[in-house]
Amino acid sequence: MSTVRPLVLILENDADLAAILVRTFGEQGFEAQSVGLVRDFERRLAQVRPAICIVDMSLPDGAGFEVIARRLKSEAIPAIAISGVWTDVSYRVLGLEMGADDYLLKPIDPRELVARVRAVLRRVEGAAGAEDNIVRFSGWTADFHGHRLIAPNGDEIDLSASEVRLLRALASRPQRVQTRETLMEGDETAGNIAFDRSIDVRISRLRAKLREDPRNPLIIKTVYGAGYMFAPAVEWSRGG
Rank of each mutant, 00 (worst) to 15 (best):
K106E: 08
P107N: 05
P107M: 02
P107C: 04
I108H: 00
D109K: 02
D109F: 01
P110E: 00
R111L: 05
R111E: 04
E112G: 01
L113Y: 00
V114I: 07
V114H: 00
V114K: 00
V114M: 01
A115T: 03
A115E: 07
A115V: 04
R116E: 03
V117Q: 01
R118H: 05
R118I: 06
R118W: 01
R118E: 14
A119G: 09
A119W: 09
A119C: 09
A119H: 07
V120N: 13
L121S: 03
R122D: 13
R122W: 03
R123Y: 08
R123K: 13
V124A: 13
V124W: 13
V124C: 12
E125K: 14
G126P: 04
A127F: 05
A127C: 13
A127R: 14
A128K: 14
G129V: 08
G129A: 06
G129W: 12
G129T: 08
A130M: 10
D132P: 04
D132V: 08
N133T: 15
N133V: 10
N133D: 14
I134P: 06
V135Q: 04
V135D: 05
R136H: 09
F137S: 08
F137Y: 13
S138M: 09
G139N: 08
T141H: 04
T141Q: 14
H145P: 02
H145Y: 04
H145C: 13
H145F: 05
H145T: 14
G146F: 05
G146W: 04
H147V: 00
H147I: 00
R148H: 06
L149Y: 06
A151K: 09
N153C: 05
N153G: 08
N153V: 02
E156R: 12
D158M: 10
L159N: 02
L159Y: 03
A161E: 15
A161M: 13
S162D: 15
S162E: 15
E163Y: 10
V164W: 11
L166A: 10
L166R: 11
L167K: 12
L167A: 09
L167Y: 12
